[in-house]
Design a protein around this nucleic acid. Structure first.
Lengths: 190, 190
DNA sequence: GTCTATAGAAGGATAGAC
DNA sequence: GTCTATCCTTCTATAGAC
C-alpha cells in the first residue's frame, strides 16, 4: 500500500543512483513511479528541485537506517562497518553496479550549481557523520577521534563506490573497507 | 597560442568539474571556449561523447602530471601525498569549491549510462593507480601493498572532494589526507 | 573550411478539461 | 483533485551559406 508520493520518491532515488540529477527527467520519474505527470506537481508544487530535495533527505535517512540495521546485527562497531562495506560490494555486483549511493552523484553535480540542493546533500552527510561518530564514541573513542574516523569511513566509502562502479569490479570497495576497519581497530586498541 | 581544439578541451574540463556531463551543454562549451558552435563538430565529428572522452583523457593525464610535479618537489612519497591533499584543500578554498576532480562527477554520471565514457573514466583511474603504485613500490613496498595503498589514496581523495564540496569547508580533505599519510608511513616503517 | 541558422527531440512547467 | 495535452525553452546535431 504505497502512496503515489512514496512511489515518486523511491523511483527518483533509483534514477538518481543510476543517472544523477540532471540526467533524470521528470517524464522518466513519472513513468518509473507510475504516477501521472500532473501528480508530480500536485505532490511537489515547486517541481524538480523539491522532488530532489525530498528524495535526498528520505534516501539519506533510509541509508542510515540500513547501516544501523546491519551494525546492530554485528557484535561491535568494527565488524558493523566491515559488514557494511562487504554488503555494499555485494549489492554492486548483484545490480550490475547500478545500486550505489543515492546521494553521491547528485552531491557532486549540485555542489557548485544549486545552493538549495547542495545544503541538502551536506545535511545528509552530516547526519551520517553524527550517527557514526556517536557509535564510535560509545565504543570508547574520544569525540574528536570518533569524528575523524567517521569522516574517513564516509569519504572512503564514497570514493570506493566511484572506483568500483567505474571499474565494474569490487576491488576498491574491499581494499578500502579493510583499511577503514583496520584503522578503527587500531584506534580502539589504544 | 592555444589552438581551438585545446580551448574546447580546457573549457569542457572546467565545466565538467562544476556541472558534470549531462549538466554541460555544447552551447556552453562553445561560449566558454570562444569556439564557434560548428567548430565543435569540425574537431570532434562524433559530437558530445567524443569531446567528453578526449576531455577526460587529457584532464586525467594533466592531473597526474600535477601530482607528479608536486611529489617531485617533496623529499619522499609520504610528504608528496600529504602535499597533494593540502594543495587540493587550498585550491578548493581559492575557487569557492569549484575546482576539484575533473573526472569524479562524470565518472558517477556515466557509470551506468554510457559504456564508452565509463571505460574512459576507468582508464584514467587505472592510470593514476599505476603511477602511484609504482612510486610506492619504489619507496620499498611490495607490489600488492603498494596497489592497496594507491587505491586507498585515490578513493579517499575522491570521497574527500565530495564531502568538502558539499560542506564548503576543507575538514574532510584535511582529516582524510592525514589518515592516508599515516597509513603509508606505517606501511613503510614495517 | 568556418560558421550561422535551423531542424527535431527532449527538457521542465502549466493550463484547463473532466 | 486527477490527469492530459500543450507551451516554451534548451538540448544535440546538421545543413548549407559564405
Amino acid at each position: 500500500m504505497t502512496s503515489t508520493r512514496d512511489r515518486i520518491l523511491t523511483a527518483t532515488a533509483a534514477l538518481f543512483q543510476e543517472r544523477g540529477y540532471t540526467g533524470t527527467g521528470l517524464k522518466q520519474i513519472s513513468a518509473q513511479s507510475q504516477a501521472p505527470f500532473g501528480s508530480l506537481y500536485h505532490h511537489f508544487p515547486a517541481g524538480k528541485v523539491e522532488i530532489a530535495a525530498e528524495t535526498l533527505r528520505t534516501a539519506g535517512v533510509g541509508y542510515q537506517l540500513l547501516f544501523e540495521a546491519i551494525a546492530d546485527n554485528e557484535p561491535d562497531i568494527v565488524s558493523g562497518i566491515g559488514a557494511f562495506f562487504a554488503g555494499a560490494a555485494q549489492v554492486l555486483e548483484e545490480t550490475d553496479y547500478a545500486d550505489a549511493c543515492p546521494i553521491a552523484t547528485v552531491a557532486l553535480e549540485v555542489a557548485s550549481t544549486n545552493e538549495t540542493l547542495r545544503v541538502v546533500t551536506h545535511d545528509v552527510f552530516e547526519l551520517w557523520l553524527a550517527s557514526l561518530t556517536s557509535r564510535l564514541a560509545n565504543a570508547g573513542l574520544d569525540e574528536v577521534r570518533a569524528r575523524e574516523l567517521a569522516i574517513l569511513a564516509v569519504t572512503a566509502l564514497e570514493g570506493a563506490f566511484m572506483l568500483s562502479r567505474a571499474a565494474k569490479n569490487t576491488e576498491a570497495m574491499h581494499v578500502t573497507g579493510r583499511f577503514v576497519v583496520a584503522e578503527i581497530e587500531r584506534s580502539l586498541r589504544r
